[in-house]
Design a protein around this nucleic acid. Structure first.
Lengths: 211, 211
DNA sequence: ATCAAGTCTGAAACTTGTTCTAGATTACCT
DNA sequence: AGGTAATCTAGAACAAGTTTCAGACTTGAT
């Protein structure tokens, strides 16, 4: 009789390997919360993600919401982790075509950028949370950063990068985040972001002396 | 009798060339507010800059504070403008020594970085405000960005940069801001920031084919 | 089946950014 | 000097993030 014998603990996603395991219902709650968060964010961006509303939309008491995500920032960063995993999966399916590594990275980031453009409010909420996060959110932000690194390394097609290459990747990430912010706050055009990404990707060439 | 004949209008600093001119007392209020803001920020960072406290410290009613700076973010961005002007002046006095432009820019930014390290809480408040700013603060944020550009161009020693060089400068600024954030939130060491800055500055070499 | 520990709920309270209001004060014009 | 519009003040009120708490429900173990 395998009905509900033991309340079937479910492993959380790759992103939270350490946390105490959650029951099915808890996992379901967590999903509902993240879904509500993304939904509200898609509508009106950072400001539209109001904790009371998230709680209501996901059928959870406010106190419970705070037990799962200790602050609005934590919630939005977790939402970003969620979306990033999804995007990494999508990107993997159609690897970029360029010849040079720099081209492929730029192409990948522009593809990600276009995906964000489709939900600019959601992008706003996630990126603002990410850069506003203080030390208490560092582990989660690091996860996001790590995931981004993986995406870029994937695009470069590298097995084990040199320290120099990792530095270049770090700088690319810096540029990526900051360029997103300038776009989201209306201080840079899409074309400008494209130029910035292409410019920074030239750093990759410097790490491959081509000889 | 030149006591208070006409309430002597004073031109606002370089940073606000358009705004309606302020009287002496208004200029003094503005100064007191910015001073209080910087002071509180130096103590406890972003969170310690509480609007009621700023108002009290600067002997101004809350409503007046909001008339001068329409939000906490506006206030902190203005504080940053203020500090940046100061820093630009300081940096100008001792121009960097490096041979190559890339070296000089890296040296300048590291000098600025060391200045920020002396008041990490203040840096935290200003940088967090800068990246959290939404569209309503765009003009002010652009001012800050422009001022930063000037500092970098100064270090490069350029009169009229090429579009390529401007792109490199943009990317350097992106990296600068983002690297600051990772440092402020404890996710990167000072050494790491140094590496990132030096890495991105190599982009400058790409714009000077040295021939 | 039952108990102890942990979790969830609903509601109120607290904090800090922001807005609003009525009455004083100040600045500018003639 | 006098009048009027703009500005400033004190304080209340509002909004949204966060905390707290008593009581109901689940979970895991016996």
């Amino acid at each position: 009789m395998d009905k509900v014998a033991k309340p079937a603990r479910v492993e959380a996603g790759i992103a939270r390997p350490d946390a105490p395991p959650l029951t099915e219902r808890q996992e379901a709650r967590r999903r509902r919360i993240l879904h509500a968060s993304a939904q509200l964010a898609s509508r009106g961006g950072f400001d539209a993600v109001q904790m009371r509303e998230v709680a209501e939309s996901s059928q959870v008491a406010l106190g419970t919401l705070y037990r799962y995500f200790p602050s609005k920032i934590h919630l939005l960063v977790a939402t970003m982790q969620d979306q990033l995993e999804h995007m990494h999966g999508t990107l993997r399916k159609k690897p970029p075509q360029g010849e040079a590594a720099a081209e492929r990275v730029a192409e990948t980031l522009m593809r990600a950028f276009r995906a964000l453009q489709r939900e600019p409010h959601l992008a706003d909420a996630m990126v603002r949370a990410l850069t506003f996060a203080d030390r208490s959110v560092s582990p989660e932000v690091d996860q996001v950063s790590h995931q981004t690194t993986l995406i870029i390394l994937d695009a470069m097609g590298l097995e084990d990068p040199t320290p120099e290459q990792l530095s270049a990747v770090r700088v690319i990430e810096h540029t990526w985040h900051s360029a997103l912010i300038t776009w989201l706050s209306g201080r840079a055009s899409i074309a400008q972001v494209k130029i910035d990404i292409e410019t920074v990707c030239r750093l990759i060439d410097l790490t491959e002396p081509r000889s």
